[in-house]
Design a binder for these strands. Structure first.
Lengths: 225, 225
DNA sequence: ATTTATTTTTAGATTAGCCTAAATTTGTTA
DNA sequence: TAACAAATTTAGGCTAATCTAAAAATAAAT
């Protein structure tokens, strides 16, 4: 497995991100947006990647990762998320500060480093944003989670992740004390603006906007009543 | 302070390394050897660096770091050595495995990361090879040390560093249990091949070659007799 | 002091990764 | 289905970092 440039690695990650979930190939335009380069450059790079058999590419049909490309992309995500855990747990960064640094650290090449880091961190299965960390074989842990928007009145759960990873959202959640692991009960749903009233950690009521509800992942708990 | 490419950073480090100690500027050839690129490429790069005011360059007179260049080089060394400490202390790598990884890690750009790492590691002043870690202001700790070759019969000291950083040497020292902190007394010096007999940790005698003596740094201790 | 060897620079090319502008293909809508 | 819009590719060019080969300058040696 030849050594890839950081740029190539970033394209693979972008393609992974775009086609995650869907079976449709990633379009040139989508990649262009994801990596912030012109569509022309993307076409260029995609041809190079397909020569290296990292993606399947057919003119004007979009690209799909090959198993080789998928493996590399998954490994990058593993490294990225493990480094995020390190930054938060060991160096006490907050969850909104770590993305850009991990974006650099994920490109470090060393056969041993990742595995040692993983061991050092105690084999964490989720990163500081609640995203699953693939294991050394590329398998993602699965967790049954729903958006807060999907909870019905009276249901309870704990905050396990975010859909929107923006700094603004993460910092806002911090202020609301809606951190990972927080306990939530949905008290009321307002039809008017689709906001909700929740009970946080059995101690405090608060109102959350529709937007927050659509970006917060909850793991349901059996209601105790 | 503009962001430099990894390549540019590597040149600055090479120039620093070459001119460390001496007041003579670094020659094109020396840099060429240090960064493993052709002399022609070095001339090219050196001109670019001088345009950025990171080095002083006069045709055929060699280069010298400007204060700006020196500051960057020193900071790189700080990062490199702190990461080495991390790799050895936290991830249990051995001292001969960490150089290449640290070589990559030193290029990570983040205003906070280094300082947090430094704090996390407890502000170490020396790296796993005994090399001093410059502080945030670029000051190197000084330690009065001599080569084992300079010790005279009966003198005692502890191993504090190495001159030769090669994997082969480091692994050899490991086998001999000549690790950092080991206590040494020079028992005898053999004129024939300039080898020596030492007492290691007050418990074991051994013979060391001239070559070992010339590459091992010792901090002298007052002899207790 | 000439010749020879070494070091350094110049000249000309190459590759990766990017760009803009123009051409082409595909999709949508009247 | 013809016309327009959107997406994609092609063409031509740029910069950073490298190379080799040749020229020029400096240093060493006869």
């Amino acid at each position: 497995m030849q050594d890839l440039s950081q740029t190539e690695e970033n394209y693979l990650k972008a393609i992974f991100k775009i086609s995650e979930g869907t079976p449709t190939p990633a379009s040139t335009n989508a990649i262009s947006a994801e990596v912030s380069t012109s569509a022309a450059s993307v076409t260029d790079m995609v041809i190079r990647l397909s020569k290296k058999e990292l993606v399947d590419y057919k003119k004007r049909k979009g690209v799909r990762l090959t198993s080789k490309g998928l493996q590399i992309a998954t490994h990058l995500i593993r490294k990225h998320r493990l480094w995020e855990v390190f930054l938060v747990e060991k160096l006490s960064f907050s969850w909104d500060e770590v993305h850009d640094i991990a974006e650099q650290l994920e490109h470090i090449k060393s056969p041993d480093l990742v595995e040692r880091l993983d061991t050092y961190l105690g084999h964490p299965r989720f990163d500081p944003h609640g995203d699953p960390i693939p294991d050394a074989d590329g398998k993602f842990a699965f967790r049954k989670q729903v958006l807060l928007a999907e909870l019905t009145r009276g249901e309870q759960g704990i905050v396990v992740g975010v859909q929107d990873h923006s700094t603004a959202f993460l910092q806002y959640l911090d202020q609301l004390q809606l951190i990972l692991g927080a306990q939530i009960e949905l008290l009321e749903r307002f039809v008017y603006d689709e906001s909700v009233k929740i009970m946080l950690n059995n101690s405090r009521e608060m109102i959350l906007s529709k937007k927050v509800c659509q970006n917060l992942f909850i793991q349901k708990q059996p209601s105790l009543k």
